[in-house]
Amino acid sequence: MKEQNQTNKLSVGIVASVCALAVVVGGGIAVWTNLRSSTTNTSNNSLTPTTPSTQKSPDETLPSLTPVTPESPNSEKLPLPGQQEPKAVTEKTVELYWVNDSSGEISLVSSGVNITAVDEPEAILTAAFERLLSGPESADFVSAIPEGTKVQALTVEDNGVYIDLSKEFTSGGGSASMMGRLGQIIYTASSLDQNANVWIFVGGTPLEILGGDGLEVSQPITRQIFQQDFPLN
């Protein structure tokens, strides 16, 4: 009887152990199942990177681009901003005026020279005076303008020709020499327009009195005024 009771107790213990084990195993399976299900759901719910579509909607269009074509070698080129087109050069015959001293009588004589310069009055007259101040090429003529005289400035305006000479212009010589050199300047300056007014400056100052004898110079002066005030034969 005692042995039977022990046997029954042992059977009950075994059954209890088996049940407990089943509970533990079942719980583990349930946990593992839930964990796997959670992992699967997380993986399925993760964001999948997408690439933007390159297709434009009908309302979205690219701006129109103008194709760049190579420049034709014969195409006309316009000057760049700030640049000026090159000026035309011309060859012009200009009358230079010299002094002719014959038998003590002074007169003005002219000789034509070819001037190559930009086709503008200022450029042509400036080149003409450079030739005049370098002296006559012919022995038949002389210049009453003192050696070393230079043109410091020359402009042509609507109201006449303005010329500024260096101070050497007023040095040396008597009245005849002063009248001769003055005539050379006036007539050469008005070689492009015989009726032009001529404004004469010396060292930047208007010329009013010339020479020790005090020759008064009108400003402006013209060929006609010169002939009246300083008659030469």
Results as ranks from 00 to 15, higher is better:
N34I: 11
R223H: 03
P49W: 08
L192N: 04
P49S: 03
Q83W: 04
E168F: 05
S111Y: 09
I163R: 00
E91N: 12
I221C: 10
L182W: 07
I225T: 10
N197L: 01
L192S: 04
V151A: 05
A22R: 08
V142A: 15
S190T: 09
N197W: 09
T33I: 04
P70M: 00
G212P: 05
T7V: 15
L62F: 05
Y97I: 03
D193R: 14
L96V: 01
T54K: 01
P206R: 10
N44Y: 09
T93V: 12
D193F: 03
P49Y: 08
I221T: 11
P81H: 00
L35I: 12
A20C: 08
A144T: 13
L132D: 03
S64P: 02
M178T: 10
V99E: 11
S17C: 13
S102E: 14
D140A: 13
G204Y: 10
V156H: 01
G180A: 12
S166D: 02
T54N: 11
L133A: 06
L62Q: 09
S53T: 12
S177L: 14
W32Y: 15
A189M: 04
G203F: 03
E60C: 00
V217S: 01
S43G: 05
T40W: 08
G180F: 07
T51F: 13
P231I: 02
S177V: 09
Q84A: 10
P58H: 00
V217N: 01
P231H: 11
N114R: 14
V142W: 07
L215S: 10
S17G: 13
Q228E: 15
G13D: 14
C19P: 03
F226A: 15
Q227Y: 13
K167W: 00
V89C: 00
T93K: 11
E91W: 07
T42K: 14
N74D: 07
M178H: 05
L207F: 09
V142I: 11
A117C: 00
L215V: 04
P73G: 03
L192Q: 09
G180N: 11
T170P: 02
M1T: 05
D193Q: 14
L133K: 07
Q6S: 11
T7L: 13
A16N: 12
S143P: 03
Q83E: 12
G82E: 01
V142P: 00
V202W: 02
T90C: 02
I115F: 01
V94D: 05
M1N: 06
S143Q: 05
G172A: 11
Y97A: 12
T93Y: 05
L133P: 08
N45I: 02
V23I: 12
